Amino acid sequence: MIDELYSARILKLAANLPHSGRLPAPEGTGERVAKLCGSKAVVDVVLDDAGRIAAFAQDVKACALGQAAAGVLGESVIGATADELDAARDAMLAMLKTGGEGPEGRFEGLRALKQVADYPARHASTMVAIEATLDAVREALARKTPDTRTSLAGAA
């Protein structure tokens, strides 16, 4: 059964980590650690004027499953919005925890990790990259959105 979990496809995805490294001037950075196994993802993003990911880098130190999820994410993340990432994360959690089909559209490749559902101890490592990406995007969006309290206070 463990051979199915670490299939040739999973190992190939794990070996291919697009956008590896860090960005020199990120607008947002997210970091997540899976407490059970120590898998870690640090993600940097730059957003375009519409709030889509224009630049992305990831530094992932994880097991093959976490690396595979990060590989799929890295292949598809440029141009993604926070809403698309939220939907992919929610679908991924449903796939792992309640038998859902998994993400659709841009992040459908994450369905390759469906067999991880049978290994609850591996769920967190599979989620670190997408969670860190969401954190980075939220931080970048917060920096782009002016704080209306500050604007109003400055006008008084």
Score class of each variant (00 low, 15 high):
residue 39 S to D: 15
residue 105 G to W: 06
residue 88 A to K: 07
residue 108 E to I: 00
residue 123 H to A: 02
residue 73 L to T: 06
residue 102 G to A: 11
residue 60 V to P: 03
residue 7 S to D: 10
residue 6 Y to I: 10
residue 108 E to A: 15
residue 82 A to Q: 13
residue 131 E to S: 11
residue 150 T to P: 00
residue 42 V to E: 05
residue 36 L to R: 07
residue 138 R to Y: 00
residue 74 G to C: 11
residue 5 L to F: 13
residue 44 D to V: 05
residue 135 D to T: 03
residue 145 T to S: 05
residue 103 P to K: 11
residue 138 R to E: 11
residue 67 Q to C: 13
residue 86 D to N: 12
residue 89 R to K: 10
residue 7 S to A: 05
residue 5 L to I: 12
residue 33 V to E: 14
residue 23 L to S: 07
residue 105 G to D: 04
residue 91 A to K: 06
residue 42 V to C: 01
residue 113 L to S: 10
residue 46 V to L: 03
residue 156 A to T: 14
residue 90 D to I: 05
residue 115 Q to W: 06
residue 137 V to M: 03
residue 51 G to V: 14
residue 64 A to F: 02
residue 145 T to D: 08
residue 94 A to V: 05
residue 6 Y to L: 11
residue 81 T to F: 04
residue 78 I to H: 07
residue 146 P to W: 06
residue 107 F to H: 11
residue 95 M to W: 07
residue 93 L to E: 15
residue 48 D to A: 02
residue 156 A to G: 15
residue 45 V to S: 13
residue 38 G to T: 12
residue 75 E to S: 11
residue 31 E to S: 08
residue 141 L to P: 03
residue 66 G to K: 03
residue 109 G to W: 15
residue 57 A to P: 10
residue 119 Y to I: 01
residue 154 G to R: 13
residue 129 A to H: 03
residue 82 A to D: 14
residue 61 K to T: 15
residue 85 L to Q: 09
residue 80 A to T: 10
residue 67 Q to R: 13
residue 46 V to Y: 02
residue 97 K to V: 11
residue 141 L to K: 15
residue 45 V to N: 14
residue 64 A to C: 05
residue 71 G to V: 10
residue 18 P to S: 08
residue 69 A to N: 10
residue 2 I to L: 09
residue 62 A to H: 05
residue 144 K to W: 03
residue 47 L to K: 12
residue 112 A to M: 04
residue 129 A to S: 15
residue 130 I to W: 13
residue 27 E to D: 13
residue 72 V to K: 13
residue 54 A to F: 02
residue 8 A to S: 11
